[in-house]
Design a protein around this nucleic acid. Structure first.
Length: 491
RNA sequence: GUCCCUUUCGUCUAGAGGCCUAGGACAACUCCCUUUCACGGAGUAGACACGAGUUCGAAUCUCGUAAGGGACGCCA
């Protein structure tokens, strides 16, 4: 028991994309498994028939894969066929197991069939609230003998199965992140195990599955903390050993409200589409509620695995700070070798329809020129756009530059210089010489010199150094661009 | 309403009774580098929610208060 292998699980309900809060929960479980050499298991909690879809399940699996978390048990990412010795791993396929467990409790008198209608329950709730009591049900069917209930069932009446809360005592949870948490048992009333449709309810399947799947540690969101009481009761009723629980803090938006759709991008999918790196999102999200013992801010997945332990998990809520995410992302992005960076950037460039040289030497020089101005992969699009042959839009900030009295002459001299160039691409040296000659011939310097040239090259007065930019552009493009800008001055 | 959790710079956090004149990171600001923008470098500013206690000594322990969050579903 002491050196039992760690078995942890991530158990999302398939309703939409994977949320960043969910990603953090998954990550902590994953890191703990990897850190201890244990198993990371994926279980799909799809007992809510109204909201769960297979499509969502696929999306969440794709998101988890994008983040680089691999599970040793659960649905196979491609075929969706269960892998592992404790399956099935989709709750909707474990219905028989839940039924058996419910039956067992029913027979032992630890659970009962309840025929109350929604209206009856609502009346009780309101009454309880008015009297200042917790709104719990008090079912008249609580002590019905099972045979009597069965008769009604046989007549076709619908019933839920409720757990019978009998013991009046305090339940103490040794939480891995919060320490000792005490719940009085009267905090909850008799709760539903099986819906009238026969579908089990979260607290019930969660316990059955965690026990049967031999889960040793459960890191989950704080909102489940009070569920723990019900779950402890069930573990007790089944006489199953309790796993260790760690209840994570909530992730908040900038307004300190729980992160939700209102806050804009909150799904991993959104971040992927917006050009964030999975390693950056993992890194950032890991630091929301956990800190590196080495006080590192930038960590690779390997470093996270090596350093992660639950003793540095923080119990207080954390605000998701997009600015820090941006910094983490930019830092990871700049550290990528050019070859890898190009692979990541290319889909964004293609999507924008940019036609760029295929030569890898050219690509790497371009990345060197641009990567310090990139926060996300998507930023590459606007940076690379002026390098393609298509005309650029001339930025409004360029107007002032176009208004300098010397601008027209400078651009014409620039154009003439390019025309004289022997090769398709100017070298940095040739560019410098050309710029110097314009300085002398036109008698301009400072921003009167380089801003017009920059506008004639990329359409705006600020950006990457010209000596980096110009050698990346074909003579033809340079000339066309200069003409484009000159025509603008006339008009 | 009842119960549970949380509370250190704007944000993420370090901090397990003296090492704290409270440290780091992001953001902000200033300067340097730079014929622009970024990158990079150097700095500045900025916090223990409040009140009692325990103690020679409290950000750290206890109790209250306040604020925020969660649960009280045939959601998870």
């Amino acid at each position: 028991m002491a050196d039992q292998t760690v078995r942890v699980r991530f158990a999302p309900s398939p309703t939409g994309y994977l949320h960043v809060g969910g990603a953090r929960t998954a990550l902590y479980n994953y890191l703990y498994a990897k850190h201890t050499g244990g198993e990371f298991i994926l279980r799909i909690e799809d007992t809510d028939e109204a909201r769960s879809t297979e499509e969502s399940m696929r999306m969440q699996i794709a998101d988890l894969q994008w983040l680089g978390m691999k599970w040793s048990e659960g649905p196979d990412p491609d075929s969706l066929i269960d892998v592992g010795a404790y399956g099935p791993y989709r709750q909707s396929r474990r219905l028989d197991i839940y039924k058996e467990h419910a039956q067992r409790l029913l027979e032992e008198g630890q659970a009962y069939y309840c025929f109350m209608t929604d209206e009856e329950i609502e009346v009780q709730r309101q009454a309880a609230i008015q009297q200042g009591r917790p709104p719990q049900v008090n079912s008249p069917y609580r002590d019905w003998p099972i045979e009597k209930a069965q008769e009604r069932l046989d007549k076709g009446d619908k019933a839920v199965v409720r757990f019978k809360v009998v013991e009046k005592r305090d339940y103490v949870l040794q939480d891995l992140v919060r320490g000792e948490v005490t719940f009085p048992s009267d905090m909850v009333g008799d709760f539903v195990l099986l819906r009238s449709t026969g579908m089990p309810v979260y607290n019930f399947c969660c316990v059955v599955d965690d026990a049967l799947m031999k889960i040793t540690h459960v890191f989950r969101a704080e909102e489940h903390l009070s569920n723990s009481l019900r779950q402890m009761m069930l573990y007790h009723a089944f006489n199953y050993p309790l796993p260790k629980f760690g209840h994570l803090s909530v992730v908040l938006g900038s307004d300190k409200q729980k992160l939700s759709k209102r806050h804009g991008a909150t799904s991993c999918h959104d971040y992927a589409q917006n050009g964030y790196l999975p390693e950056a999102l993992n890194n950032f999200v890991a630091l929301l509620g956990w800190s590196s013992p080495a006080a590192q801010e930038i960590l690779s997945m390997e470093e996270l695995i090596a350093q992660f332990d639950y003793d540095r998990l923080n119990a207080s809520p954390a605000v998701f700070d997009e600015q820090k995410l941006n910094w983490v992302n930019a830092t990871h992005l700049r550290a990528l070798p050019n070859e890898e960076l190009w692979k990541r950037v290319e889909p964004f460039l293609n999507e924008a329809g940019l036609k760029l040289p295929a030569d890898s030497g050219w690509r790497f020089r371009a990345l060197d020129a641009f990567k310090t101005s990139m926060t996300t992969l998507k930023d590459a699009v606007e940076l690379f756009r002026p390098l393609s042959e298509t005309p650029v839009s001339i930025a409004t900030e360029s107007e002032e530059v176009l208004g300098f009295p010397t601008t027209r002459a400078v651009i014409e001299a620039w154009k003439a210089g390019i025309e004289q160039a022997g090769s398709d691409y100017l070298t940095e040296e040739q560019f410098n010489k050309l710029q110097d000659s314009i300085k002398d011939s036109q008698n301009v310097k400072g921003k009167q010199l380089f801003q017009p040239i920059r506008v004639a090259v990329i359409g705006k007065p600020q950006g990457t150094e010209l000596k980096m930019l110009v050698p990346l552009m074909h003579k033809r493009t340079l000339l066309a661009r200069a003409d484009q800008v000159l025509s603008r001055i006339k008009g």
